[in-house]
Design a binder for these strands. Structure first.
Lengths: 200, 200, 200, 200
DNA sequence: GATGAATGAGCATTCATTCAT
DNA sequence: TATGAATGAATGCTCATTCAT
């Protein structure tokens, strides 16, 4: 019995995994359900046993990936380090994720944007949660007076996402040019000096 | 004769203008050639007299818009002000563009991303030019020793684009929440302090 | 052993009963095997243990219902009353059936028609038997010289079915408008006396 | 110009004509748009230039056919003959139609029934008009006291339709058995005089 | 026998593109 | 040049049927 539940669970995640790859490679509109099914090793119809429709599959794929990211963020939040060190760790965490799962970056980049337009009804809780987690760290820094209070943490969290997403994408699309270390250093420099209060 | 060439030119730009609006509103895949044609006041077939296909129309639309942005950037580059002031002016320039032509933001956001996937053969000169212009200002700052030399200007220009694009999009999608002034202030703060050399 | 055979028999009829309701409600093509299975309280696959396929289920459902109708007709045939009284009783019998089991009318109406098209190979013995029983009464009337001999009993039986089926359907679909009593009276009048007023 | 409008009109009717044949042969659900298109000699997509969807095509087909029938009924209504003669003429008119356009009978039989279930939103004005026309003749007969006043003309019109439709169908499906003349005679006899022999 | 997860054939519909006018 | 009617390829989704358990 347990084995069967396990098997089912496996199939669900196999489809999700396949969807992530296909969406990353082709984008939502060019991705065919049959592509996903073939990559997952199931029949087309089977996808519909686990997901309501293509759109639902997109949302579930996005959420799975964002949950993965949020988990990483939460881990860092819990650590007993300074807000500045958390920001630094977060930045590195993002690039490590990009290195391990490059298609995560593509799905986030492309499909998150879709959500602004085509999934307006879809609340996108996971991305909201992501922004909330980032803004919490910024607030923490503001409370301990290392980050300036004039900065709106929500806008800053969005800026943080924008800078990271774009540079991760840069690396994923053209890996040869810059090393992740180099990118990480530049970005950390900009964000930390940018966020940090003037020592005057 | 001149009038006719003018007329033709007009039709070309009318289609381009219509395409920008339709792509912005619906995204490339959901945009229909017939939507563009109707908005431009021409027949469907006429679009194909000026553009090779839908794909070509997308590229030309993107280039037209990026040229608009690059023009703004170039203007600021030419001004006789410090690199820091140029960066500040650039940021404001971007947000003013977003205020005046919100669909520019959407086209850049959505269709630039398409280009990573579907236009790999397409060189995207305009975006490269944009990044080059930004990086020139950063280099200028590095030369006059107001920006630190350790920062790779190309990576920084990409970060600059990422932060601006994401925050412009945030504003375009949900105008109610934050004013452009507030967003501009936060972003300028992060970028300028981030870029600027330690005064120690 | 008997109990098990009984159980099996029960399951067979439970599926048939469910099929009748689902076919009546949705029509053959829109009816799903899973709908039937759910209503019968069995698994989808179980339906195929008792019926060859959906088509076979339709035929068996139709036959079960026609057998019900034919039983009613036979009962009336056996009664020791005049042919005219039998016709009258038959008409009432039909409307009572419609009142008690409205879905019988729908299955006969819709699925009998399907049979003309899709079951040409299927002989439709039950409907033939129905027509034969009706024509027997007409012949009986012709023999006792209350019905005119010029009338072909087989055509008349078909006319009889047509008039009853259409008016039953009228009542089932829009119950509010006319009472079964009123319909029964008009139809009995037409069948027995015709439209024309008695010249007496 | 006129020629083009004519051509377009032709294409519309060619599709309608093809649809009638395909619906008659296979029924709505088994009929494929590509069947209709092929028979009409157009591309699949062309069907959608003239009809909103398959459902709309069905309704338009049905209405075209019913209009044809209603026209025939109206012609007879206008004639300067007695109600009894009109009823007789109507019956013959129906069978002639069945002889000339057998698929008309099938479309009416099968698709009218669909309309009871699946097109409840669809008002079916043409069929209502048909029933109204028939009931007018019956009322006329009641006013001139050749038909009995106790009969509800609306129920009678429905009965009239039921008897004719069923017998037309009988003939269309198995042409060999009975001649239309024989069917016409029996049906006229029943409708006008009823089954019962004149007691004179 | 009974189950229900898995299968995959089948079809309506859209829309970029063409081409006769 | 300009038109827009016509084309037909392409695909998401459903559901009858099978079969391993």
């Amino acid at each position: 019995m347990k084995a069967m539940a396990e098997k089912k669970r496996n199939k669900y995640f196999r489809i999700l995994e396949a969807a992530a790859r296909v969406f990353a490679e082709k984008g939502f509109h060019k991705a065919k359900i049959s592509d996903v099914a073939r990559l997952a090793g199931v029949a087309d119809g089977t996808v519909y046993l686990y997901f309501k429709n293509k759109h639902d599959l997109l949302i579930k794929t996005f959420e799975e990936i964002m949950e993965h990211v949020n988990e990483m963020v939460r881990e860092i939040c819990k650590e007993d380090i300074s807000p500045e060190e958390k920001i630094k760790a977060l930045i590195n965490g993002h690039y490590e994720l990009a290195k391990e799962h490059p298609h995560i970056v593509e799905v986030i980049t492309f499909e998150l944007r879709q959500s602004y337009k085509f999934m307006k009804e879809y609340e996108n809780k996971k991305f909201k949660e992501y922004l909330r987690l980032i803004s919490l760290i910024i607030k923490e820094g503001q409370n301990s007076e290392v980050f300036p209070k004039e900065i709106n943490p929500y806008i800053a969290s969005r800026a943080f996402f924008g800078i990271l997403n774009e540079t991760m994408l840069q690396w994923v699309v053209s890996k040869e040019k810059y090393s992740l270390d180099e990118i990480s250093e530049v970005v950390s420099r900009i964000i930390l000096k940018g966020l940090t209060k003037n020592q005057s």
